[in-house]
Structure formats: structure tokens, C-alpha cells
């Protein structure tokens, strides 16, 4: 009913179409980076659902990313599942893991929540290292090309990889867009803004937050499964604390609580790190400097600032 309902959808469809068009024009190097960015942006979008829209700051999303990735990878190499089924298996596992972690961690809030999620994620990472015989520990394992065929489509092929990444990206983009505009998403924002008030309006705050964590964790798990499958490698690094910090960084940079922010943040950060790693092995320095600058000067992030200044209608 409000003006701009259509322009919101048009904008996001346009973004997807632009990325599709880039598929035909980008040189191989950037084509490869963009494919990776799209998959990582799924992780960021998942993170943003909990952090941006619900106000739950987790430092443990590497657990969900890793859970999805290992469920998919071990599903293929260990259980002999086909890739499609393995991804479904990964989604089911992510739902379970996020439901369990959420129902425990959400008994805390604020700083405690950050530490609890961090500790669970660390425990998960150590578990992967501890069961090195199955998980191949730090080294990780490669998913052979022969096992990366879905309905005759070879995922190792860079063109297929790009298009499948785009399809998954678009699905998650429109799903989150739909969710945050639903009464569920609006209730989450209410909880973020004023939890006590939301409770006294009749919202079951715990159930809503748990729902948010499950959606967020499942999207993050899907990202992990997609990443492992599309790039053919599963390793403990992806479950380490770095992959809890990175989505936070991407979302803060792009703009928390905006639909396009996670993608914009991931894109910028990936290129920043890519460019700086040509000069130095200490490329994480860029991440550090940007985190500090963001907290000091640009709390809204890129899309957030655009929204504030020019386009308050952006979701």
C-alpha cells in the first residue's frame, strides 16, 4: 500500500540482473572473484538477519558456516550422498545446530551472548581438529571433480559455478527481503529496538529470537555447503574464528540491517584484501583498520549511509 513497494522489488531484481550481465563481460579473474563474493555474501546475509535485523551480535557464525560445509563435504565423501542430497543434508544439519545453539545461547544477551557464541564456535572448531581422522583436520579435504556433478552440470566449471552461485545468492536475497518485510521480520526489528516493549505487546521474544537464529544459522550453513561444493574444498579454517569475524566485518562495512549491505560489504572487503595482498602478506591489517574506522566514523556502513542520506525507503 505504501509508495515504493514496487521500486524495492525492482531495485533488487536489477541488482541480480546486473550480476547476471557481468557474467558475460567480466574477465576470468574478476569473474572468479565475483562468484566467490556471491557465496560469501550469502553468509553475510545470514549473519545480517540475526545481527542487523534482530540485534543479536554473534561471534560464532563460523560454527554454522562450518557445520553446513562439513555436513555437505562429509555427506559426499563419507556417506556417499549425491551433491544435491548432500546440500539438503547440510541444510537439515544447520537447522539442528542453530536450533540447539540458539536455544542455549539466547538465555544470555549482549556481551555474554557474544562470548557464548564465540565459545561454542571455538568448541566446534576444536572438534573438527580433534576428529582429524574423519575431518582431515587443518589440512581439510578436496571434493573430487567427479563427485561435483549435479544433474550433469559440472560445478568445477567456472561458468556453471558463477551461475549457480548467482541462483543461490538471488534465492537468499529475495527470501531475506520477503522475511524482513513480513510480520515476522517486523517483530524482530521491534525486539531489537525495545525488547521489553515487544514482550509487553504480546510477542514471545525468546521464540522470535530463536527463529531469527535458526533462519540466520541455516542461511550461513547453506553458504558453507555451497562454498565447499562450488570450490571443491572443505577445511577447518572455514570453521575458525576468522569466519565469525569476517561476516561481522562485511555486514558492518556494507550496512547492517539493509538487504544489499552484506553483498556490498563483502564485495568491497574482498577487493580491498585482494588488492592489499599484492603488496603484503599482512592483508588482515586492512580488516583491522576498517573495523576501527567503521566503529569510529561510519556506524551505518555504505548502504546504511546511502539509506540515511538519499533513500530512506531502502529495506
Amino acid at each position: 500500500m505504501r509508495a515504493g513497494e514496487n521500486r524495492v522489488w525492482l531495485l533488487h531484481i536489477a541488482v541480480v540482473l546486473v550480476i547476471l550481465a557481468l557474467h558475460f563481460v567480466l574477465p576470468p579473474y574478476h569473474h572468479g572473484i565475483l562468484a566467490r563474493v556471491m557465496v560469501l555474501a550469502i553468509l553475510a546475509m545470514g549473519y545480517n538477519f540475526a545481527f542487523g535485523y534482530t540485534g543479536l551480535l554473534s561471534l560464532g557464525h563460523a560454527l554454522f558456516f562450518g557445520a553446513g560445509m562439513y555436513a555437505m563435504g562429509l555427506g559426499i565423501t563419507g556417506l556417499g550422498l549425491s551433491p544435491g542430497i548432500a546440500v539438503l543434508f547440510a541444510i537439515v544439519c544447520s537447522v539442528l545446530v542453530s536450533a540447539i545453539i540458539g536455544s542455549l545461547a539466547l538465555r544470555t544477551a549482549g556481551v555474554s551472548l557474544m562470548i557464548v557464541t564465540l565459545m561454542f564456535a571455538q568448541a566446534g572448531w576444536y572438534l573438527i581438529l580433534y576428529f582429524g581422522e574423519i575431518t582431515r583436520g587443518d589440512e581439510g579435504f578436496v571434493i573430487p571433480q567427479a563427485q561435483r556433478l549435479v544433474a550433469g552440470i559440472d560445478l568445477a566449471d567456472s561458468n556453471n559455478r558463477y551461475l549457480i552461485a548467482l541462483i543461490l545468492f538471488a534465492i537468499v536475497l529475495f527470501t531475506t527481503l520477503k522475511l524482513v518485510r513480513s510480520s515476522f521480520g517486523k517483530a524482530l526489528v521491534a525486539i531489537r529496538e525495545n525488547e521489553e516493549r515487544a514482550k509487553m505487546l504480546g510477542y514471545n521474544v525468546f521464540a522470535y529470537k530463536l527463529g531469527a537464529i535458526i533462519v540466520s544459522g541455516t542461511i550461513s550453513g547453506l553458504a558453507g555447503a555451497a562454498y565447499g561444493l562450488l570450490f571443491g574444498y572443505v577445511g577447518a579454517t572455514f570453521a575458525s574464528v576468522q569466519y565469525s569475524i569476517l561476516p561481522l566485518l562485511w555486514v558492518l562495512l556494507g550496512g547492517a540491517s539493509t538487504i544489499l549491505g552484506p553483498f556490498v560489504g563483502t564485495l568491497f572487503m574482498t577487493y580491498l584484501i585482494d588488492i592489499s595482498s599484492e603488496f603484503t602478506e599482512a592483508y588482515l591489517l586492512v580488516a583491522g583498520v576498517i573495523l576501527v574506522l567503521l566503529t569510529l566514523f561510519a556506524r551505518q556502513g555504505i548502504v546504511g549511509e546511502v539509506k540515511k542520506r538519499f533513500a530512506p525507503w531502502l529495506p
Binding site: 551480535l57 561471534l59 557474544m114 561481522l248 580488516a287 583491522g288 583498520v289 576498517i290 573495523l291 566503529t295
Partner: peptide
Amino acid sequence: IVATIGILY
């Protein structure tokens, strides 16, 4: 916390 993560890096 975010800022000290930055300082860490």
C-alpha cells in the same frame, strides 16, 4: 568489542 577486534588485527 568490534573496535578491539580491529585493534587485534
